[in-house]
Design a protein around this nucleic acid. Sequence first.
DNA 1: CTAATGATGAACT
DNA 2: GTTCATCATTAGG
Length: 192
Amino acid sequence: MLLKSFFENKKVEELANTLLGCELVHESSEGTTAGIIVETESYHETDEASHSYKYRSKRNEVMFGPSGHVYVYFTYGIHWCFNIVAEPEGIGAGVLIRALEPTQGIELMKKRRNKQDVLNLANGPAKLVQAMGISKADYGKPLYKGKLYLNKAESKGVKIAFGPRIGISKAQEKPWRFWIEGNSFVSGRPRP
DNA sequence: CTAATGATGAACT
DNA sequence: GTTCATCATTAGG
């Protein structure tokens, strides 16, 4: 699994970039599920759209902590999203995982999601949280230690594309969304 | 205490 | 492509 040093000494957008192609693994009591990260977005405290913008609060305080920890948040009344904290303690930054390509425990994911279509298991922020069995219980946990962790990118030479983020009502000017070019598990396709 | 808001998904036409 | 479900967190009084 990737160690603490992987998350350190990287800018948030750099981490978002490096995370593409890595495998996210969760060993739960129901079984192990895993998937390749194919889409990310980066957020920083200087960015108006970020939860960590301007001040810290009870919800986002883990984003100001050391990098490599898990930030899980709830939105729109029913949806959970999964983030990885980036940059050193004191800086509120993180990478939102937007989509996964399932690799292990696909049957379990289908059961959790109550869907049969593999393409539709984890191609969205709240979907992958459900498919992986991640919950608020994982909030603040380190990714370099424990049952939820990352494996190094297996394939080299994947094409990385980037563009504006999705679902932001303010500050959409930063091209801080990254995805693997041509991967069909990426949520949505930006227009040229 | 009360009201507005939102880094979305599913179902539908 | 469009509509709406649904609630923790936040800001304001």
